[in-house]
Amino acid sequence: MNWENVIPGIMTGAAAQTADPAMDSDQFAAFYERSSRQLWAFLARTSGDAALADDLMQESYVRFLCVRPLAEGEIASRRYLFRIASNLLRDHWRRPRSLSIEDAPMERLAQDTSAQMESRLSLEPAMASLRPRDRQLLWLAHAENYSHREIAEITGLGVTSIRLLLFRARRQMAQALEKNGRGTL
């Protein structure tokens, strides 16, 4: 008895290709083309790290493909993609890290190329004055034009909390912009 006949596809990997009849590689490529730049902008501007944004964007799409293809339409898929990216960012920020240069492992310092240092310093001043979560909320609300309900779905926060957090973050950012001389309407 051949087990590959008993469990078709699993041993050859064919199941992975046929599991989602709603989506093929061309459809994914089109969706990627339409959504990847926006996702990268979100990740880069809220993290302030272009290299990290590259990594998290790739991981977001891979997880998205593993979990949910385009079955529920592009708008829902895009929102789901942002949700994955938002969770990845949150996990990144929660990860313990060295607080001082003495605590940092030598091999890590040796790997830190000037390009990486540069990429890490790209956070815009008004954004840098905010907490990471506030940056995310502001970006989703004002750059991506998501409603409070959609932001709640993406971030996992309550709608009431989002309204309050957005109110404070917006005020803080407006003050930072005025302080930096960018307060013109």
Partner: peptide, 26 residues
Amino acid sequence: LVTKHLQGLRGTSIAAAQPGSASLLW
């Protein structure tokens, strides 16, 4: 003020983005 600023950043970031290959991710 905030919306204009963030949409400006969004525009420059989208222009600067260099997404990799979709087939590789697939």
